[in-house]
Simulated scan of single mutants.
Amino acid sequence: MIPIRAARPDDAAELVRLRRLMFHAMHGTDEPGPWEASAEEAVRRQLSEPEPVLGAFVVDGDEPGDSRLAACAVGRVEERLPAPAHPTGRFGFVFNVCTDPRYRGRGFARATTEALLDWFAARDVTRVDLHATEDAEHLYRSLGFAEHSIPLSLDLSRRRA
């Protein structure tokens, strides 16, 4: 059995390190930047809230003397207006699933993602969205994810210029 636990605020730096690894897998870049300090602060704050909207599940690394995380799955509950198919108005978004390269092939991504999906279900989330790399698409499909049409999106950071 894979030892999964809920992430704690003091895991913030490691969750951001794994996020950087995910960006490398998705976009070929993993350069550190000022976003990391903001991300660490957001993780700490959102995991410390009395009723957290951030769900994060991790597997600790098992190499001697290494305190790094082996894997994580992180998502957030978003509340929108209820609709016939989504009476609670609660949607989930998975935005960070990553396994450190030293630990790949052990089922950690599946196990942490399943824990995150259970967390969403316990909060009456009716739909969960994510973006996946081609390499990970088979994992998400095996968990029941399917194509969904999101017709348009806008990067507001470009409008501010």
Rank of each mutant, 00 (worst) to 15 (best):
residue 81 L to V: 09
residue 102 R to W: 04
residue 60 D to C: 09
residue 125 V to L: 01
residue 140 Y to C: 02
residue 63 E to M: 09
residue 102 R to C: 02
residue 116 L to F: 07
residue 127 R to G: 02
residue 38 S to K: 09
residue 95 F to N: 12
residue 111 A to R: 12
residue 88 T to C: 06
residue 84 P to Y: 13
residue 88 T to L: 04
residue 54 L to D: 05
residue 48 S to P: 10
residue 96 N to G: 07
residue 23 F to C: 01
residue 63 E to I: 09
residue 137 E to C: 02
residue 116 L to E: 05
residue 42 A to Q: 08
residue 8 R to L: 15
residue 115 A to Y: 04
residue 48 S to Y: 11
residue 81 L to E: 11
residue 71 A to N: 03
residue 116 L to W: 05
residue 119 W to I: 01
residue 18 L to S: 06
residue 105 G to Y: 12
residue 127 R to Q: 13
residue 17 R to L: 05
residue 125 V to R: 01
residue 22 M to R: 08
residue 31 E to P: 00
residue 142 S to I: 03
residue 100 D to Q: 04
residue 128 V to I: 13
residue 101 P to K: 01
residue 124 D to A: 14
residue 78 E to C: 02
residue 79 E to T: 15
residue 53 V to Y: 07
residue 80 R to V: 12
residue 55 G to W: 13
residue 71 A to P: 04
residue 21 L to F: 10
residue 159 R to E: 13
residue 92 G to F: 01
residue 6 A to T: 14
residue 159 R to H: 13
residue 55 G to P: 11
residue 79 E to F: 04
residue 161 A to P: 06
residue 7 A to V: 07
residue 40 E to W: 02
residue 44 R to F: 11
residue 2 I to E: 11
residue 40 E to H: 00
residue 71 A to Q: 03
residue 144 G to T: 06
residue 63 E to C: 00
residue 155 D to I: 01
residue 49 E to P: 00
residue 141 R to D: 08
residue 27 H to V: 05
residue 53 V to C: 03
residue 77 V to L: 11
residue 99 T to M: 09
residue 130 L to P: 05
residue 25 A to H: 06
residue 23 F to I: 00
residue 5 R to F: 06
residue 24 H to Y: 15
residue 95 F to R: 01
residue 94 V to E: 04
residue 52 P to E: 12
residue 55 G to H: 11
residue 105 G to P: 12
residue 82 P to W: 10
residue 71 A to T: 03
residue 160 R to P: 01
residue 16 V to A: 14
residue 61 G to W: 07
residue 32 P to M: 02
residue 74 V to A: 10
residue 104 R to E: 15
residue 151 P to S: 08
residue 136 A to Q: 11
residue 13 A to H: 10
residue 88 T to I: 06
residue 149 S to I: 09
residue 158 R to N: 05
residue 26 M to D: 14
residue 136 A to S: 15
residue 11 D to W: 09
residue 133 T to N: 03
residue 155 D to W: 07
residue 118 D to C: 00
residue 2 I to K: 07
residue 148 H to M: 06
residue 61 G to I: 03
residue 49 E to M: 10
residue 111 A to P: 12
residue 136 A to I: 10
residue 20 R to V: 12
residue 56 A to H: 04
residue 27 H to R: 14
residue 44 R to V: 15
residue 160 R to I: 15
residue 136 A to F: 11
residue 11 D to C: 06
residue 22 M to F: 15
residue 122 A to P: 00
residue 44 R to S: 15
residue 70 A to G: 06
residue 12 A to S: 10
residue 139 L to V: 08
residue 127 R to N: 01
residue 153 S to Y: 11
residue 84 P to T: 10
residue 9 P to W: 12
residue 68 R to C: 07
residue 132 A to E: 07
residue 77 V to H: 09
residue 102 R to L: 14
